[in-house]
């Protein structure tokens, strides 16, 4: 179990997260939804220590880490146990798809080159990118890049996979292939937190949905509870706006 407690983060006077606590069971797929600027991305970035929160702790395998302290060893420990998938893929542009996936295996897990290569090829196979192993990011479409980025994160066998709007920077027709990969990964028992605006996808893939508003968790439950029977006024308002497009304009 992974536990996040009392996480707060403010940029100058703008409070983005306020005393957020969250318990994540092994194998949970948690969908995080909410309006823009409510700290969804910041939540993930704080967990991964790309952002240093003002306060908060993370407990992983019984080891409790103060996220505010900027301790190098603790930071590496957290990062080595969590994987991050970014909105803009962030592949290493001077490395091939294969080298991108191998990088962490070589430098962090200290595998021998040949072992790393085999492991990386397996990861690429999982996301259906084996044929593109020798290609550089510039040669790949957004969807393909994101699939490689997912393989890169998964290669390190993270205890917790953080997905920060993985399909937001993609052309609509490429969204499907990435969602398919995420669905497959979720089915393999990975614990993940998924921040996304793809409501239908969040609803179908997660077994728990969190609604964040102004830095607070205002709704927390199964997808059925949150989407069909939201308790909070803000959630209802948000969801009605979200689904306005999928509803017909006129009902005759």
């Amino acid at each position: 179990m992974i536990r996040i407690e009392h996480l707060s983060k403010a940029f100058q006077k703008n409070v983005v997260l306020e005393d957020v606590s969250l318990e994540i069971e092994q194998g949970n797929v948690i969908g995080v939804i909410g309006p823009s600027g409510t700290g969804k991305s910041t939540l993930l970035r704080c967990i991964n220590q790309l952002e240093i929160p003002d306060q908060g702790t993370l407990t992983l395998d019984g080891r409790t880490i103060d996220l505010h302290r900027k301790n190098k060893q603790d930071m590496l420990y957290i990062r080595r146990n969590t994987g991050m998938v970014f909105q803009k893929f962030n592949l290493f542009e001077k490395k091939t798809a294969l080298e991108n996936v191998m990088e962490g295996l070589l430098t962090v897990h200290k595998l021998k080159p040949e072992e790393a290569r085999q492991a990386a090829l397996e990861e690429l196979d999982r996301v259906g990118m084996t044929a593109w192993a020798n290609h550089y990011p510039v040669h790949l479409s957004g969807g393909q890049q994101q699939r490689v980025a997912i393989a890169r994160a998964l290669a390190l066998k993270p205890r917790l996979l953080l997905l920060d709007e993985p399909t937001s920077a993609l052309d609509p027709e490429l969204v499907g292939e990435v969602l398919e990969v995420i669905r497959k990964v979720a089915g393999q028992g990975y614990t993940m937190i998924l921040v996304s605006h793809e409501m239908a996808f969040v609803q179908s893939i997660s077994n728990r949905v969190i609604f964040l508003d102004k830095g607070h968790i205002v709704e927390d439950g199964t997808p059925a509870q949150v989407f069909s029977n939201p308790q909070n006024e803000r959630t209802r308002e948000f969801l009605s706006k979200m689904f306005i497009l999928t509803q017909p304009e006129f009902i005759i």
């Binding site: 991050m84 970014f86 290493f92 542009e93 001077k94 990088e103 962490g104 962090v108």
Partner: peptide, 29 residues
């Protein structure tokens, strides 16, 4: 690109590993 440095950090690479393997090769160009 900052994003690539963040990506390297997120997989647990140290600053010097990132500098040597990601930043310097790209900066060299």
């Amino acid at each position: 690109d900052r994003g690539q440095i963040e990506a390297a950090s997120s997989i647990g690479m140290t600053y010097f590993q990132t500098l040597r393997r990601i930043i310097l090769p790209e900066a060299l160009t």
